[in-house]
């Protein structure tokens, strides 16, 4: 849901979002630059490409309708919240500049709705669930709830952003937007769980889990039964 320029008509709203997003991302960059090892820079770059390419994997839902992964929560689970924030910002910015997908004035809004909602809030939920339920089950359940929440929260934020102008006539469309995203969030949750399950099997170390027996190779064969 890349918001184009003009959907949020009031400049005060998108300017404020630009400032909030820029501040958060600047913090993330300052914080991570210090700890970043040289070889982790290509890692984050390739992860940005992964999120971009992962959005090409479409799920046929019904005739003519298909959905795809957003990936903010998945990125946060795999890279940590701040690195995922940087990666999602890069993805969303390039999508804006290269594909004109999402507006430029609205860049801050998109970074908040599609990035921060998942990489920070979704991630907190994911960590919370993992703190209660240990092991694989915690990773999968936390991933599912976090991914679903990140999508619904993203839609909720768009609704709030539209509603900030104070027009009562905007309430109904904003509500509809959130309701539509409740099932879309389930799609995100399902894809995220599927992805985490593969990573748990192939590289559990990346999710902070101990390897279970021998490390198996991941192949396309097991990805597409």
């Amino acid at each position: 849901m890349h918001i184009p320029d003009g959907l949020i008509n009031d400049p005060r709203v998108w300017l404020a979002a630009d400032v909030v997003a820029a501040g958060t991302v600047a913090y993330a960059v300052r914080r991570e630059s210090r700890a970043l090892k040289p070889e982790e820079v290509p890692l984050m770059g390739v992860m940005a490409a992964f999120v971009f390419a992962g959005q090409m994997l479409n799920v046929p839902v019904a005739a003519g309708v298909s959905g795809h992964l957003l990936g903010a929560l998945l990125a946060a689970a795999l890279l940590g919240p701040w690195r995922a924030t940087i990666v999602m910002t890069v993805v969303i910015t390039v999508q804006c500049l290269l594909h004109a997908d999402g507006g430029f004035a609205a860049l801050g809004l998109n970074v908040i709705n599609m990035g921060l909602a998942g990489t920070l809030v979704g991630w907190l939920i994911y960590r919370g669930v993992r703190a209660v339920i240990a092991g694989r089950a915690g990773v999968l359940l936390g991933g599912a709830i976090g991914a679903w929440a990140s999508v619904v929260l993203g839609a909720l934020l768009v609704g709030v952003e539209i509603g900030l102008t104070g027009q009562t006539d905007f309430v109904t469309p904003a509500k509809a937007l959130v309701i539509v995203h409740v099932p879309i969030g389930l799609l995100e949750a399902g894809i995220t769980v599927g992805a985490l399950a593969v990573v748990l099997r192939a590289r559990p170390d990346l999710l902070g889990c101990a390897p279970r027996g021998a490390v198996e190779a991941v192949s396309t064969a097991e990805a597409a039964p």
């Binding site: 795809h68 399902g190 894809i191 990805a223």
Partner: peptide, 18 residues
Amino acid sequence: RRVLVVGSMAGSLFVRGY
């Protein structure tokens, strides 16, 4: 099932990318 299949494709893509 279709959703989970796409999920495991994304997981494989991630591991290979990593």
